[in-house]
Amino acid sequence: MIRVAIVGYGNLGRGVELALKQNPDMSLVGVFTRRAPDTVTTQGAQAYAMEDLVGKKAEIDVCILCGGSATDLPEQTPALTKDFNTVDSFDTHAKIPEHFERVNQVGKANQTLAVISTGWDPGLFSLNRLYAQSILPEGETYTFWGEGVSQGHSDALRRIPGVADATQYTIPNEEVIEALKAGQKMNVTTRDKHFRQCFVVLEENGDAAAVKEAIVTMPNYFAEYDTEVNFISQRELDKEHKAMPHGGKVLRTGTTGTDTQQVIEYNLALASNPEFTASVLVAYARACVRLAQEGHTGAMTVLDIAPKYLSPIADDILRRDLL
């Protein structure tokens, strides 16, 4: 039985609690939160203060870290990897190499293992980009997200001073997608591929102009995209923009042989982004514990881990049923 701690209990943490119920080889030790534990309503799990986590070290095989990438995970993952095996969903693509190096040093020094940047992008999409470009070396890879709610981008909005709440939609350019699949050669920029739509609730004294400027100039999140900012009431946000759909696709167009056109496409259509991301985290938590038991330390990503480590099924059964 793999013993799991959930660190952080927002949408992703709730998704992890649900996902663990579908994995009988895993048990939940508890939810660890910065809020007062008696104010946290879980789906059955015991809630503890963050300060209690290290005291339960002997009861925990892996911590699944459910904080945001903007400010939580850059600090939490290296800090907690000093004492625990960890899995996170750090998704600021431009900063993944830096995050990896920091966490890898901590894991090597403390004989623990961290699996970073899991989820679906980075995560499953990363794997499919690797497979596709390896199989079609003559070609181009394109990643499209949405239409849907980005948890990471929404969290980044909520961290802006003056913002009370916010939701961000990523909307792909379908015309570009269809042209690429048809074999059309295009010089596609980041701005061409997606549009970002933000719905923002201001704090009582929030400065709309300052908030909008902070959004559209935010590097790694909005500065590289055409971004629409809409200021609305909390009531409207709660009514119209609290569902969590998302998805996207990885597209590789290339040629083989004598200029034969080939297309590889991997697609996700998700009714609940946090629940799906949580399910990926849980599978990689299983892999993390198994690899740690084999003596691996430091940091790893989805690119380093063989698929069999994700499954609770024995290797010989996987070969029989899936190959």
Rank of each mutant, 00 (worst) to 15 (best):
Q184I: 14
N205I: 03
Q133L: 07
P172G: 05
T167P: 08
F199L: 05
R129D: 04
I135Q: 07
E140Y: 04
E138H: 12
K185C: 02
L130V: 13
A208D: 05
S134L: 10
V201W: 02
T189G: 05
R159N: 10
G183H: 12
D155T: 09
A132H: 11
A156E: 00
V163H: 05
S134K: 09
Y169T: 04
I171W: 06
F195M: 10
N173L: 11
N205Q: 14
R191K: 15
G148H: 12
D192Q: 04
L130M: 15
L202G: 03
V163I: 11
E203D: 06
M186T: 06
Q184S: 13
A182H: 13
F199H: 12
E178L: 14
V176T: 13
S134H: 03
W145A: 11
K185P: 00
L180P: 15
L127Y: 02
L157I: 02
A164G: 09
S150V: 09
A132V: 02
R158G: 11
F144G: 03
V176K: 12
V163N: 05
V149L: 15
E204R: 15
G162E: 07
N205T: 13
S150F: 13
Q133A: 01
A132N: 15
H153E: 07
Y142E: 03
Q133G: 00
H153D: 08
E140C: 07
N187E: 14
L202I: 08
L180G: 11
I135L: 09
K185T: 14
G146K: 13
A210L: 12
T189H: 04
A166P: 08
C198R: 08
L130N: 08
N128L: 12
A132Y: 12
G146V: 06
L180N: 09
G139T: 13
E140W: 00
A208N: 02
G146F: 03
A209C: 03
T141F: 10
E140Q: 14
T170H: 00
H153S: 07
G152A: 15
Y169D: 03
A164M: 08
I177Q: 15
L127A: 04
V188E: 09
E140H: 08
I177D: 10
E147R: 10
I135D: 06
R129E: 12
A179D: 07
G139F: 14
V176F: 02
Q168S: 10
F199S: 09
G162L: 01
E175N: 11
T143I: 14
L127M: 11
R158D: 07
K185A: 13
A164V: 03
Y142H: 15
L136Q: 02
A182T: 09
E138N: 14
Q184R: 13
A210N: 15
P137W: 11
S150K: 05
R191C: 07
S134T: 11
T170W: 00
H153I: 04
